[in-house]
Write a protein that binds this DNA or RNA. Structure first.
Lengths: 246, 246
DNA sequence: CCTACCGATCGGTAGG
DNA sequence: CCTACCGATCGGTAGG
């Protein structure tokens, strides 16, 4: 299943300890620092949860991948759900932070939106396993559990704030239901994890470009699109101009 | 493989036949006809798979909901996976059929596209549990398993065909990568199952309207949008015109 | 982190 | 469809 060193080196250890000699005799098989092992556990858990799903993953699977015994995992966690919750909280906060930074770039609401789209697509592609676990397992929690675990901040609200700004600036179509818009935008971006697979042929940036184009054209006013195309050569509106010329 | 349960209804039948008397002595506790029970099983399975996920659902859960013993489920299926596969195949074929019918409406590619969007949104909202199970469990299969179970036809290809038509008609932006476009469109529509919950406040049709608007504006040429707005008073392009005027 | 272990539950089956 | 059952595995724990 995985090629690693032999796993039961305990006897050697106790012998070495009793002898008074430094216990790092076996080098490669030595215990790792707590923090390091913990990171290994989190990342192995994310990978296997991604491959098989949380429920179908046993602690045995995770222990095997990391190279310890199943029971030893309880040296680090209190329950299987505990391991999952650590992942959810980590992903949530790092993702929301990223989204916030993107929302705070200088420029119009459309430029903020473009930055958020690129940031989110990039984040998902770079953290496929963790994002997938996050999105899939979050749905199984009740709203109360979710709020207790992650706090009141949501991706949807970060997007919604920028949408409201854009509407006030006259850059977004006035007939849009902004809450629905935020939900659909977020869903469209999130759905990437369902089909994306790292590939040279279609890099992550190409997907981001595509989504920026479709979503901005889909929601912005003519005025908004013109303002955007006046600015950047790399922007969507720019792409559209170029394509139209060709 | 998926044409309903095997047809060996043995014991009870033969007893009834042999005795000649009607076997409906116990009234409330009576066995239901095989087909009826089978439908109950499929629908209970879909609901519970949706609530807890396939892996976290035990056959005991399903048996309890239907009111039979766990072991008795094997009168209808050969394995737990068998039950899931029946659901996947059913949803796939009924969904693809619906999509095909939408794609064959008279009119331009944009009108076909609008019909497909409405049809798919409606299908998801009306079959939330089954769709969710379909989308979630399908991802866990290898491409080979998927092809063996569902055949070569995919949602993505039905959409792709219409997109190619639209590009040839000059109704879609020429710079679009159509395969990527089909994938993203499908993902955007599918993501509805992640957050939709039946509600009077925001009916399914409002979501469909929104997506038709965003997706058509996001992908169509000016010419395509104008042609569409010339036709229907309820179309998106019409909405945009009205909004711009306001 | 390992040893050694437990109760509960799981999918599944033989036979009627 | 029920009775009666099984081997395997699961999450988890006491104690070092």
């Amino acid at each position: 299943m995985h090629a690693g060193p032999a796993k039961n080196f305990q006897t050697v250890k106790s012998v070495a300890r009793r002898g008074g000699a430094p216990r790092e005799i076996k080098g490669a098989n030595d215990r790792k620092p707590r923090e390091e092992r913990w990171e290994e556990l989190l990342s192995a858990a994310a990978d296997i949860f991604y491959e098989k799903g949380y429920d179908a993953t046993s602690l045995q699977d995770i222990a095997d991948r990391v190279g310890i015994l199943k029971g030893s995992i309880y040296y680090y966690i209190k329950s299987k759900a505990d391991l999952r919750d650590h992942l959810l909280v980590d992903v949530h906060h790092s993702g929301i932070d990223m989204m916030r930074r993107c929302a705070s770039v200088e420029g119009s609401a459309l430029e903020k939106l473009e930055s958020m789209i690129r940031g989110h697509v990039d984040y998902i592609c770079r953290n496929l396993a963790k994002t997938a676990v996050y999105l899939q397992e979050l749905k199984k929690l009740t709203p109360d559990e979710r709020a207790a675990m992650l706090g009141p901040n949501t991706y949807r609200n970060v997007i919604l704030d920028v949408l409201r700004l854009g509407r006030d600036e006259g850059l977004l179509l006035p007939e849009l239901d902004l809450k629905l818009t935020a939900q659909v935008m977020l869903g469209s971006l999130n759905s990437i994890y369902q089909w994306y697979q790292p590939s040279v042929a279609r890099p992550c940036a190409a997907i981001a470009d595509h989504l920026v184009g479709v979503l901005l054209r889909g929601h912005a006013t003519e005025q908004g699109l013109r303002a955007l195309s006046r600015k950047a050569a790399t922007s969507v509106a720019g792409d559209r101009k170029r394509a139209t010329r060709a």
